[in-house]
């Protein structure tokens, strides 16, 4: 679905003040896979995400999305159709004054016939559970609803991959849960691949695979269990592990018979209360 090969990127390449942001990054995301990307601020996560959407082009190496090289100037829109992007701030992503018009923006730009646009808008709003709000004004929506609207806007172009750059960072717990539930459902039921950048380790623990970035490189990669078992390395990078994992590791060090790679409250309860 997404293949980044030896991608390096320098901001302001060739200028005296160029800044290297990515070094030799390899990333493969299979169709339908859910990948979380974690890393300290400035580690290159967002720069990498923008390559998947052809917002940035590699200084060297290449990125292939749905079989298309993102450097092909004639196919940029195909890349953006295949990989839709949702950003952190819900207020910066809304373009229209009515919810359904906002969702229609993408398909309209692709020059689709009106009947098809209407069908897609309805489908996308249904998928994020906002159909009853189709005539509402976006500014009056809650933060979680706005992010779901942003996702609907991307879904209307039927992407095969969603790239989410800290989509829950500005939301309250309800809004966060709404967005996460929506993304999980789109991934599991519709097979849309997800690349989810997050600072929240509990969110990352729910992915199929976790990629850890630091200083513009991928420094660790594996299932959430494998990655969060490396608590010492993550702490060195200024990251953390989910609180449940941290507690499990402490209790194990205290001599209790508990696996070191637990991720959820359920698992820890089961380990402490064998039935």
């Amino acid at each position: 679905m997404v293949r980044a090969e030896n991608v390096s990127f320098r901001y302001g390449a060739g200028q005296p003040d160029e800044v290297a942001a990515l070094f030799d990054v390899d990333l493969r995301v299979a169709p339908g896979e859910y990948v979380a990307v974690i890393g300290p601020n400035g580690s290159g996560k967002s720069t990498l995400a923008k390559h998947i959407n052809a917002l940035l082009m590699p200084s060297s190496g290449r990125v292939v999305v749905a079989g298309i090289d993102t450097r092909d100037p004639d196919r940029v829109w195909e890349v953006r159709q295949a990989a839709g992007m949702v950003f952190q701030n819900p207020d910066n992503q809304i373009v229209a004054t009515v919810v359904e018009e906002d969702v229609a923006f993408g398909p309209e730009n692709l020059g689709m016939p009106p009947a098809e646009i209407r069908r897609r808008v309805k489908e996308a709003l249904e998928a994020v559970r906002l159909l009853e709000y189709s005539q509402h004004a976006p500014y009056a929506l809650s933060g979680g609803q706005k992010q779901r609207l942003a996702i609907a806007g991307v879904l209307a172009i039927r992407p095969r991959c969603l790239v989410l750059d800290e989509p829950t960072a500005m939301l309250d717990p309800v809004g966060r849960e709404e967005v996460l539930r929506t993304v999980r459902r789109l991934n599991r039921e519709d097979g849309i691949a997800v690349i989810h950048i997050t600072q929240d380790m509990e969110e990352a623990a729910e992915a199929d695979r976790v990629v850890v970035m630091d200083g513009g490189r991928v420094v660790l990669e594996g299932t959430p269990r494998q990655v969060f078992a490396r608590a010492d390395l993550l702490r060195e990078l200024g990251l953390e592990v989910p609180q449940v994992t941290e507690l499990a590791q402490m209790l194990r060090a205290d001599g209790l018979d508990i696996p070191p790679d637990l991720l959820t409250v359920d698992e820890l309860v089961a380990a402490l209360c064998p039935s």
Binding site: E202, P242, Q243, V244, L247, L251, D266, V269, L272, C273
Partner: peptide, 27 residues
């Protein structure tokens, strides 16, 4: 999360206090 964990342990019959806020307190 630590407060939720204590509640779940209590539901399973473990006499833990519910007034737990941090990982260290849970430990």
């Amino acid at each position: 999360p630590m407060t939720s964990l204590m509640r779940r342990l209590r539901d399973r019959g473990r006499p833990v206090s519910l007034g737990v806020l941090t990982v260290e307190e849970a430990r």
